[in-house]
Design a protein around this nucleic acid. Structure first.
Lengths: 189, 189
DNA sequence: GTCTATAAAACGATAGAC
DNA sequence: GTCTATCGTTTTATAGAC
């Protein structure tokens, strides 16, 4: 009987976990299938290719942040400063809840110069994230200053993951949060 | 034909270029050999394995920075501020001179959670880099503050490469340099 | 003849795709 | 499960320098 052992959503979720931890090229279709309890033959019933699967994973990540994190920037029940803190701390919490750090950052490093396949999705994600951060900073600063502060927050966050992966110390992420919020209060560049 | 087509040093240099651009798992021994005008089989007269080759590449990068960048921190012909600026701008210039960004950062992202093989080399590199940056900041700040400022500089630099790879805009690196030097003059966290 | 750096061929394992 | 291609690696053969 053609009963689905797992849903398509569950397959994408499992793929996210593996891609985060092992990277794109290091993760095989057999790995992905095994993680879902499937034979690798059955796997192509869900997705036409590895590329397409990764594309779905990136879409999942993007839509998740679009729903759970980005709207915080416009939550009028919170002060702009509170929005900034909530947005960054939530992003840290979400990304750190499973191994491997930020999939978008990892994939940018691993694939940006090798294939154009995922570039548009990654660019849109970071553009939108920069935009919401910038929107919050813009409550206190000029649009140009707000843009720079948003870029600084993103750049620090992504770089912090490298140190976390290398040292195992999540302290680097806490420092990023602390500084990003601090710069909302007092900025002098 | 016992005349060498390429020296071992040239092989390592070519491997560095390819690994930077394509990553470790995406780069095959055939790719590496071809870049040196060799067949992949002949490659094993230089190195016993792909791992060993990458290890040599990391060693090259480390020794290069140990010779050309890290000593700037102790150059008494320059002010501490000048040393900081020279060290970071030199690092940017060196790394940006070939495609692919920072090999140490790329490899940390790609392999840190997959194999222990390269962890020690990458950890030592970043520890030393943090140490020299911290040494310069320590001219104006407490050891604890200097350490944090060094970490911030490294984290911003590595994260900036993600945005550079994604957008093609090297401006992110210039901003990192500007802020790192600025924080030497005026720090308030 | 003896080295040795290369090419050539082939190994087993595993890749992505069907 | 099967396919073909390619992976990292190993082995064998060849060609030139001593």
């Amino acid at each position: 009987m053609p009963i689905q052992k797992v849903t398509k959503e569950e397959v994408v979720r499992q793929a996210l976990l593996l891609f985060k931890k092992q990277g794109y090229h290091r993760t095989s279709m057999a790995d992905l299938a095994a993680a879902c309890g499937l034979l690798k033959g059955s796997f192509y019933h869900y997705f036409p290719s590895k590329d397409a699967l990764m594309s779905e994973v990136l879409k999942l990540v993007h839509s998740y942040f679009k729903e759970k994190v980005f709207p915080i920037a416009y939550d009028e029940s919170l002060s702009p400063r509170q929005r900034l803190e909530k947005m960054i701390s939530k992003k840290i919490k979400i990304v750190a809840s499973t191994e491997g750090g930020c999939l978008m950052g990892n994939m940018a490093i691993e694939t940006a110069l090798v294939t154009d396949e995922f570039l548009p999705q990654m660019r849109v994600f970071f553009e939108e994230y920069l935009q919401v951060l910038s929107h919050v900073y813009a409550y206190k600063y000029t649009p140009e200053e707000a843009q720079k502060l948003a870029e600084q927050a993103v750049v620090e966050y992504e770089g912090a993951w490298i140190m976390v992966k290398l040292t195992g110390k999540s302290r680097y992420l806490e420092d990023v949060l602390q500084r990003a919020v601090y710069r909302f209060d007092t900025h002098n560049l």
